[in-house]
Amino acid sequence: MTDPWIAFDLTLAGGMLVVAWLALASRAAFQMIVMFMMFGILASLSWVRLNAPDVALAEAAVGAGITGALLLRTLSSLRHAPKERAPHWPIAMVAGVLSLIIVGALGAALLMAPEASLGYDRAVAIRLDQSGVTNPVTAVLLNFRSYDTLLEIAVLSAALAIMLMLGSKPLSPRPLGPLFLPFAKVIVPSSVIIAGYLLWLGASQPGGAFQAAAVLAAGGIVLILGQHYDPRARDGALIRLVCGIGLAGFVLVAIGGQILTSEMLRYPEGLEKTWIVMIEATLTVSVAATLAALFVGALRKGTTA
């Protein structure tokens, strides 16, 4: 008997193709962004179907939510509407051939993958009790492969640094009416609580620093859009400090691990959980500040490009 889920999966896959095509084929930039966000939500659903709730959470919060907000923000600060031009056919040809090669290579990789390679599942499962956490994804991200996470934070910090150097058109939120304050009063405290919950959950279940940071950043963006808090008016230096502290703290952990265990990014035995929770808590606040700062743009008052 066939799995009844197959109908759902086929609809989902078909929907993703349609939405991806609409996102690429739309003439209006706004429509493209909305389609991209929809694609993110469908992708998140497909991760749920692939039994990867961690990736699904990250995709929904970062891929569909925060990225969409950043794209819309970018669109609003463009001086000219982006001009739509049909690419010349040689460029279109080259792009088409390259895409086909990538599709072919991915397909070949999938077909030729040896049966036995089930990813890192077994290796992680064997050593999970040494990691200090019980969620294998968190164990990989913050213990076994924490070097990768460190570099991700570095990329995020670099993006913020470049944006601060280039400057941006300052955000000019419009008045949002009398209903926005009660809304913010519900949403902002909830975002703090939910971020804390996701952070704590990360040790044993799907959740963790990035998802928590995205939720916290969303709460911050609500405050900023409602003009309840203007990071440019004050605290500019403080916010830059908070943004930098994630990377700085992680680097300090790497050095501390080197000194204490003579191996970079290795945590002292027995204290793994404490170290991971400390890193994750710092990262949550710092990444949330970075994401919100990327949304706001120029942090200094009066800076324009």
Binding site: L176, G177, L179, F180, F183, V186, I187, S190
Partner: peptide, 16 residues
């Protein structure tokens, strides 16, 4: 609750 509140305010803002 969260989606209801967000939906209401979203609808309000779009209408505005």
């Amino acid at each position: 609750i969260l989606i209801a509140v967000s939906g209401a305010i979203g609808g309000h803002l779009i209408a505005r």
